[in-house]
Amino acid sequence: MHSLGDEIKGFSKNRLKKQCTRVTTLSGKRIIETWKDSLVHVVDDPDQQDGPTCGYVQDLSMDLQIGVVKPWLLLGSQDVAQDQDILKKYKVTHILNVAYGVENVFPDEFTYKKLSILDLPETDITSYFPECFDFIEEARLQNGAVLVHCNAGVSRAPAIIIAYLIHSEKLNFARAFSIVKNARPSVCPNPGFMEQLHKYQDCSRRQTDVIHEKTD
């Protein structure tokens, strides 16, 4: 039987596709991160412009691929959130916007929650989990469908959904990651988020053990 560590090792080495993203750090420096085999290689962006901006991942290509994690739980990029035809096709009722610098486009058509989260390894994404989980549960209990999106649909939004599965279905990280990765193959949370998700799994497992001890 494979241990959790073996499962995670297997996912990171064999299933994570190479990813290349442009990131603007909090200091305004622009870098390019290239992912391969769970390693990240960082170089300065040759197209770097003068003047500071806030940190976020830039994705200038159109990406209208929706990851169907569950029929009512969807994952995508900001492009999906701005395409009303696709949103209607998937019967979206709620939109959780965790992108940076992306406004809600159809406020009269959908129920929104907006949290501006920076796609940086040092961002404490776990601090956003309770609000996100409550909103996702609200959509589920209302028999709706919720789209969770960030800018590129690669790091922040997948991390939120992975954590939600760990929380709501008591899955381990490896299983939750596999479900989300299968739904949207491009997902690749940044290394800081990956570390936080592993710790969140351990914390959730301890809490479950405590509850079981109290009920025995």
Score class of each variant (00 low, 15 high):
residue 117 I to W: 05
residue 176 A to M: 06
residue 95 I to M: 03
residue 150 C to L: 09
residue 156 R to H: 00
residue 113 K to F: 03
residue 180 V to R: 02
residue 165 L to H: 01
residue 140 R to A: 10
residue 69 V to W: 00
residue 6 D to Q: 15
residue 169 E to I: 06
residue 126 T to D: 02
residue 181 K to M: 14
residue 98 V to R: 00
residue 126 T to E: 08
residue 135 F to Y: 10
residue 41 H to S: 13
residue 58 Q to I: 12
residue 183 A to W: 12
residue 191 P to S: 07
residue 7 E to L: 15
residue 177 F to T: 10
residue 66 I to W: 04
residue 92 V to G: 14
residue 115 L to C: 14
residue 166 I to D: 00
residue 48 Q to K: 03
residue 183 A to F: 12
residue 175 R to I: 07
residue 16 L to P: 00
residue 157 A to H: 08
residue 128 Y to N: 13
residue 127 S to P: 01
residue 3 S to P: 13
residue 190 N to R: 07
residue 44 D to H: 11
residue 187 V to A: 04
residue 209 D to V: 06
residue 101 G to S: 06
residue 174 A to V: 06
residue 52 P to M: 09
residue 20 C to H: 08
residue 141 L to V: 04
residue 145 A to E: 02
residue 179 I to T: 02
residue 199 K to S: 11
residue 93 T to G: 09
residue 122 E to H: 11
residue 213 E to I: 10
residue 182 N to R: 15
residue 205 R to F: 04
residue 20 C to N: 09
residue 81 A to F: 01
residue 149 H to I: 13
residue 68 V to H: 00
residue 211 I to T: 04
residue 211 I to L: 08
residue 58 Q to V: 12
residue 204 S to H: 07
residue 209 D to W: 03
residue 15 R to L: 15
residue 158 P to W: 01
residue 154 V to S: 06
residue 206 R to L: 14
residue 194 M to I: 14
residue 94 H to G: 11
residue 36 K to P: 02
residue 183 A to S: 12
residue 140 R to S: 07
residue 177 F to S: 05
residue 98 V to F: 01
residue 153 G to M: 05
residue 169 E to D: 10
residue 85 D to P: 03
residue 8 I to F: 02
residue 209 D to M: 08
residue 166 I to H: 01
residue 45 D to I: 00
residue 120 L to V: 11
residue 76 G to N: 04
residue 67 G to Y: 05
residue 91 K to Q: 15
residue 62 M to P: 02
residue 67 G to P: 03
residue 159 A to P: 00
residue 56 Y to D: 01
residue 89 K to G: 05
residue 29 K to H: 07
residue 25 T to L: 09
residue 207 Q to E: 15
residue 171 L to F: 04
residue 124 D to N: 15
residue 8 I to N: 01
residue 152 A to Y: 04
residue 113 K to W: 02
residue 47 D to M: 12
residue 106 F to R: 03
residue 9 K to F: 14
